[in-house]
Design a protein around this nucleic acid. Structure first.
Lengths: 153, 153
DNA sequence: TATAAAACCGGAAATTATCCGGAATTTTGG
DNA sequence: CCAAAATTCCGGATAATTTCCGGTTTTATA
């Protein structure tokens, strides 16, 4: 991070908002040459600051109308139980994210399905069938107030 | 969604994984012409299936080492109280996501900061100062097992 | 201040995006 | 089932962009 100068930061800010900006456009906004921008972006990728570029879809238009956060508590916390849960749960395509957490439960999952019916199927036939689960608490998104992938830097 | 054919879906799958694929590469993978791919992508954007394309950064390298999920409960649930909370909270750059939720709390926030110290500052001086908050419960990410932006379609 | 290292740049060549006219395919209406 | 209409698809031409290179300028170092 400390080896990023202002130009690097500005490029990262721009690409976090729009990964399809041309080098020419970035060049104009930053008042540097195209060749300089090209070299900077190449380096930012090579050094791992930019992990990847992805298209963000409108989830309601592709039939993922329901987002759930599911908090999972396991029976025990041996390495193998934790690892087995992770190994199993990440295979479910409904699971967009899985985080091991501090606090009163072990994992939080972000689940994307078409509707409550599909979530119910997922819950009964997939998530709840995994071994060593003590409890699952599910919360559902009523509305998305903010949803950003760009970190302020 | 129903007016997407297999080619549209395949293009969306590919671009969700890598938004920088050239039309030529997509053309090769799908065995269609470059012109066809170009027109399909243009339409998918125009119709709003593709909202935007973004660079995903390595958050640890840009000093966002700590992710917290904060569950917020408000005093009352009038439209104006809810709206005011949303209006205020989305202005904080630490807040990456804000969802209104069903269940035992009102909002869940995803907060990105450099470390626990920075989170504490955010909590004391920003989040907790907002009006009409009954309680805030914070949970911290120990490890990211899965973190995907691509919906299975 | 001399030297080395790094950043930067313009321009050339390779690659890609974009557009167009027309062919092929699918849909529609009788 | 067929013919007309609409849509999808394609190859090739052109505009735009990426990528690379040699050389200049700027910055860092001793």
């Amino acid at each position: 991070m400390t080896d990023l100068d202002n130009l690097d930061l500005e490029i990262l800010r721009l690409l976090q908002k729009d990964a399809l900006l041309t080098n020419k456009e970035i060049s104009f906004k930053t008042r540097k040459s195209i060749a300089t921008i090209h070299e900077r972006i190449r380096r930012l990728k090579e050094q791992g600051y930019i992990e990847r570029s992805v298209a963000i879809l409108n989830r309601k238009k592709i039939n993922k109308g329901l987002i759930a956060f599911s908090q999972v508590l396991l029976n025990d916390h041996t390495i193998s139980t934790l690892a087995k849960f992770e190994e199993d749960v990440i295979k479910f395509p409904e699971v967009m994210e899985c985080f091991q957490m501090t606090g009163t439960f072990d994992f939080i999952l972000r689940i994307a399905t078409s509707d409550m019916d599909a979530y119910h199927q997922f819950y009964r036939h997939k998530l709840a069938t995994l071994p060593n689960i003590t409890s699952i608490q599910s919360f559902f998104v009523l509305s998305e107030t903010k949803s950003d992938t760009a970190y302020p830097i």
